[in-house]
Amino acid sequence: MRTGIRAPVSTAVAIAVGFLVLISLLIPGLEDLRNQILNWAILLAAIALLLGLANLFQVHFNKVRDREKPVYSSILLVAMLVTFGLTLWQGSQGDVPKWIFNNLQLPIETGLMAVLAVSLTIAAARFFQSRSDLMGFVFIGALFIALLAAAPVFGLELPIFTQVVGPIINSLSISAARGLLIGVGLGTLATGLRILLGADRPYGG
């Protein structure tokens, strides 16, 4: 059995669908077609998410089978299957899924975010180790101003930062952020066009 679909088919699909959606975004009259394609894409993305779930399951099932840190992987598998089954059964607003979300998932996730406070402090404290040039000084200097402008420090108000220097730094960074965003937009535009031109074929074409 030959299972490969020839690349031109995939490339043609990507280009045709991509241009259709793009044209429908730029000129009016094709909204129905676009919505149709977007509905398919939303459905396919959801199915892809399930394939992701299957991949996660497979990777960790294999680890359990191969006795490669099986405790961790079996915890993951049990947690995944129980949450999946219960949420499907009761609905995402059901009591048990809500309990799991509020008392298990949320504390860990906010906890990980809280750990970031330490990780980022360490990163900033070690910043000069890797970068002791002018830009390093500018970064740390601006970081100090931005931090000191945020709130009183050890209970002491520092109006020079909150009312004078802080707003200046903020205003400059808003303008520079605009430049950064336009640049990101240009990069996005070019990257998207490469897919539509068939020059980039990440779908295996």
Binding site: L44, G185, I195, G205
Partner: peptide, 24 residues
Amino acid sequence: NPVTALLAGVGAALAIGGAVQGTI
């Protein structure tokens, strides 16, 4: 592959539309 190609095509078009109309 054609289905992932479809997703990539839609993604690219949305990226272009978003970049031009939403950012630039």
